[in-house]
Simulated assay, not measured.
Amino acid sequence: MTDTINHQVLLVEKPAGKLGPEHFKLIDGPMPAPKDGEALLRVRYISLDAANRAWMHGATYRSAVEANSVMAGGGIAEVVSSHSDALKPGDIVFGDTGWQNYAAVPVKHLTKMPRMEPLTHLLSIYGIAGLTAYFGLLDVGKPKQGETVVVSAAAGSVGSIVGQIAKLKGCRVVGIAGGADKCQWLTSELGFDAAVDYKDGAVFKALKAAAPDGIDVYFDNVGGDILEAVLPQMNLNGRIACCGAISQYDGAPSATGPRGVPGLIVVKRLTMQGFIVMDYMKQRDQALSDLQSWVSSGKIKVLEDVINGIENTPQALIGLLAGENRGKRMVKV
Rank of each mutant, 00 (worst) to 15 (best):
L11N: 08
I240N: 07
S152Q: 01
V162Q: 06
L168D: 07
Q315L: 12
P34A: 15
C183L: 09
P212H: 15
R329M: 10
A195W: 13
R172C: 06
K328Y: 07
P118K: 03
P114V: 12
R53W: 06
G327Q: 04
G17Q: 11
H7D: 10
I27Q: 06
G73K: 07
H7L: 15
H57T: 12
F94K: 10
P258A: 11
V174C: 05
V158Y: 08
T120G: 12
P262G: 11
G156M: 05
D28S: 12
G170Y: 12
D305C: 14
V151W: 10
R329W: 04
K14E: 07
L137P: 07
D193L: 13
P118N: 04
L321N: 07
P32A: 14
A86D: 12
D96A: 15
D139N: 15
T111F: 13
V267S: 13
N101R: 13
E38N: 03
E38G: 08
S124V: 00
E189S: 14
A209S: 04
H83V: 06
L317R: 07
G141S: 00
A229P: 08
G323L: 10
V306Y: 04
L10R: 01
P253L: 09
G274I: 10
Q145F: 14
L40I: 01
G257D: 05
Q286Y: 05
A86E: 14
L123I: 13
S63V: 11
A54M: 15
L190M: 08
Q315R: 05
K332T: 01
K268D: 02
T2V: 12
S84G: 08
M1G: 14
M71I: 02
V105N: 11
V203S: 02
S247P: 00
V333R: 07
I46T: 08
I318R: 10
V333Q: 03
Y126V: 02
R239Y: 09
Y45W: 06
H109E: 14
K25M: 07
V266M: 15
L227T: 08
I27G: 11
K18E: 14
L186M: 07
L317N: 02
G156K: 10
D49Y: 04
K169R: 09
D200Y: 06
V306D: 04
L264F: 03
C171G: 01
K328V: 00
F275C: 04
G163W: 04
P253E: 02
S297F: 01
G17T: 02
D36A: 15
E147M: 00
S296M: 12
I246L: 04
N237P: 03
K25L: 12
G75Q: 12
